[in-house]
Design a protein around this nucleic acid. Structure first.
Lengths: 132, 132
DNA sequence: CTAAACGTTGACCCCGGGGTCAAGGTCAAG
DNA sequence: CTTGACCTTGACCCCGGGGTCAACGTTTAG
């Protein structure tokens, strides 16, 4: 299949596929006229790339998944080589969450000082509901 | 005082101050030779701008704070005009946190499938400790 | 034959908050 | 006069993930 067909099958755009290739995530064959040619398994591969991107991994990060990028990573096992990458990203996410929690507290505080006590109280600690 | 002095006093850079001005957050006088001239109160103003930026507000958002940007917003009341801006930003932060929580769960899950069970368990639910 | 619908590469645009030159004006001290 | 520290505006660079042209080649249908 050619790039347009793959883009359609994978629910993305031609531009994105060329970008993934530029980032070293895809290596399509070329027909004599220069067109990119993809096999059907590349649909899964592209889906995996997009899944990992949605998790906040960068294109560079995803290169660590190359050995298992053709597998069904949403369900099955992920290649061990990527564990370090995931762990690092996880740490970043934890940091981001902690920072946002701090920010949240300060915003609620500022809201209270803005004379919007009702509004502030409504937002007081909504996240507590998720654990208690 | 001139821009270099203010930058030093406010703990930031000349470039940043010019950027804030470009964004409409500062309006210094000009000396006959074109140099920017700032009063001492502008130090607080710049500190406020930087505080709000650190909370994730954008330069555009901060324009809503113009009426109270000279006050001591870290301690005293914030001008009511900015309440809506803060509330909106708060909603965004809540969304971000929720999204990151989801991402976190998926990352831990992926980590487990990567054969790094110990690592995954270590990260299992560290945020639960903050509420329980 | 021709037009449409594909494909190709290359290059500029976006966002946010500035960093980092470049090229030049101004002012005090030596 | 000269040096050096300060100031000015303008313009390009960064990151990530592409969007959106431009200018051109190829294939397919009528």
């Amino acid at each position: 299949m050619r790039i347009g067909e793959l883009a359609h099958a994978a629910g993305t755009t031609v531009r994105a596929l060329r970008y993934y290739e530029q980032q070293g995530l895809l290596r399509p064959d070329r027909s004599p006229n220069g067109y990119r040619l993809y096999g059907g398994s590349q649909v899964t591969r592209v889906a995996n790339i997009r899944l990992l991107l949605s998790l906040g991994l960068t294109a560079t990060d995803i290169r660590a998944f190359l050995p298992c990028l053709g597998d069904d990573i949403a369900e099955g096992p992920v290649c061990p080589a990527s564990a370090a990458v995931i762990a690092r990203r996880l740490a970043e996410v934890d940091d981001r969450i902690a920072a946002l929690d701090t920010t949240r507290t300060r915003l609620v505080d500022a809201l209270a000082r803005a004379g919007a006590e009702k509004l502030a109280r409504a937002h007081e600690a909504p996240r507590a509901r998720t654990t208690g």
